[in-house]
C-alpha cells in the first residue's frame, strides 16, 4: 500500500458514515412522504446515534460489547479495502466476520425476541450471502479478476451484466431488511418481534451497530455504483435509484415467509447468474 492508499482508506472510513446516515435520513423522509406523513428531519439518524452514544451502558452480558465492536470494525475495514480497490471476495469475507458476531451477540442473550431475530438474520444471510458472491463471479467473467481495480477498469458492467445487477439489487433489499424481507428486526417496530435481533442491544452498543449498518449500506450501494464505473456520478445515481425502488417496494408490500425468501432468492440468484454468464459466452465478452 502506498501513502495515497492510506489517505483514501482514511477518507473513506471518515466520510462513509456521514453518507450512510444521510441516506438513511432520506430513506425515512421518503417513506414518510409516501405514507402521507411529514417525517423526521433528514439529519434525524445522526441525532439518534449521538443520543444513543450518550445513554446508559445497559447490557445483558459482556459478549454484546465484543459483538458490537467487531461488527463495526469489520464493516469499517471492508469499506476501507473497497476504497483502495482490493479483492472483492476478501471484502465480502471480512464483512461476514462482523455479521457472524452481530448474530452471536444476539444469540448470547437469552431473550426469545432477540434469539428469534438472530435465527431469522441467519436465514437472511443464507439468502443473500451466496448471491453476493455470485455477483463477484459474474464480474470475474467480464474482468478476469476479483480485484476491484481490474473490475472497475471495465467501465460499463451494467451492459454486460444486467441480470447480475438485478441479483445485486435483490441482495441490497434483503440486506437492509426492507419489506418483504423485514424478518430479523421487523423494521416497522411494534410488531410481534419487538426489534428482533436488536432487542437486547441498547445504548452506545446499539449506536455502534447503527453506524456499522451505515457502512454496509454504503458498501452495497458502492458495489451497485461500480456497474457504471466509467462515470461514478452516473453509477451513484443508478445505485440511489435502486435504493429508491427498494423504498417503494418496502411500502407497497408485506412481509413474506422465510421459506419463500430463501427459495425466491436462491432461484432468482442461481438462474439469473447462469443466464447472464451464458449470455456473456454467446456475446463473446467473457475472458
Amino acid at each position: 500500500m502506498t501513502w495515497a492508499d492510506y489517505l483514501i482508506f482514511a477518507a473513506a472510513v471518515i466520510l462513509t458514515p456521514l453518507i450512510g446516515g444521510l441516506i438513511t435520513g432520506l430513506d425515512r423522509k421518503v417513506t414518510a412522504l409516501i405514507q402521507g406523513r411529514y417525517g423526521p428531519p433528514v439529519l434525524q439518524p445522526f441525532y439518534d446515534v449521538v443520543k444513543l452514544l450518550s445513554k446508559e451502558k445497559m447490557i445483558v452480558n459482556d459478549f454484546q460489547i465484543f459483538a458490537a465492536y467487531i461488527y463495526l470494525l469489520s464493516a469499517i475495514l471492508s469499506v476501507g479495502f473497497f476504497a483502495i480497490k482490493a479483492d472483492l471476495l476478501m471484502i465480502i469475507f471480512i464483512m461476514s466476520i462482523g455479521l457472524v458476531f452481530y448474530v452471536i451477540g444476539a444469540l448470547a442473550t437469552r431473550s426469545p425476541y432477540s434469539q428469534v431475530g438472530a435465527q431469522r438474520e441467519l436465514m437472511q444471510m443464507l439468502a443473500y450471502e451466496p448471491l453476493l458472491i455470485f455477483v463477484l463471479i459474474g464480474m470475474y467473467y467480464v474482468a478476469g479478476s476479483f480485484n476491484l481495480h481490474d473490475i472497475m477498469s471495465h467501465g460499463r458492467l451494467l451492459l454486460d451484466l444486467p441480470l447480475i445487477f438485478v441479483v445485486l439489487s435483490l441482495v441490497l433489499d434483503i440486506k437492509i431488511k426492507k419489506s418483504p424481507f423485514d424478518f430479523s428486526t421487523s423494521e416497522h417496530a411494534h410488531q410481534e418481534l419487538v426489534r428482533g435481533i436488536l432487542t437486547d442491544y441498547a445504548g452506545p452498543y446499539l449506536a455502534l451497530i447503527e453506524i456499522a449498518d451505515w457502512y454496509e449500506l454504503v458498501l452495497l450501494l458502492a458495489m451497485l455504483a461500480i456497474f457504471w464505473s466509467q462515470n461514478l456520478v452516473i453509477g451513484a445515481l443508478i445505485s440511489l435509484f435502486v435504493f429508491f425502488l427498494d423504498i417503494i417496494v418496502d411500502n407497497i408490500s408485506a412481509r413474506m415467509t422465510l421459506k419463500w425468501m430463501l427459495s425466491f432468492s436462491w432461484i432468482v440468484g442461481i438462474s439469473f447468474t447462469v443466464l447472464n454468464i451464458a449470455y456473456l459466452y454467446f456475446s463473446n465478452v467473457s475472458r
Partner: peptide, 12 residues
C-alpha cells in the same frame, strides 16, 4: 454460527 450462539447464550 448458531452453535457458537448456543454455547455463549446466557442471561447474565
Amino acid at each position: 454460527t448458531r452453535w457458537i450462539g448456543n454455547i455463549l447464550s446466557e442471561g447474565h
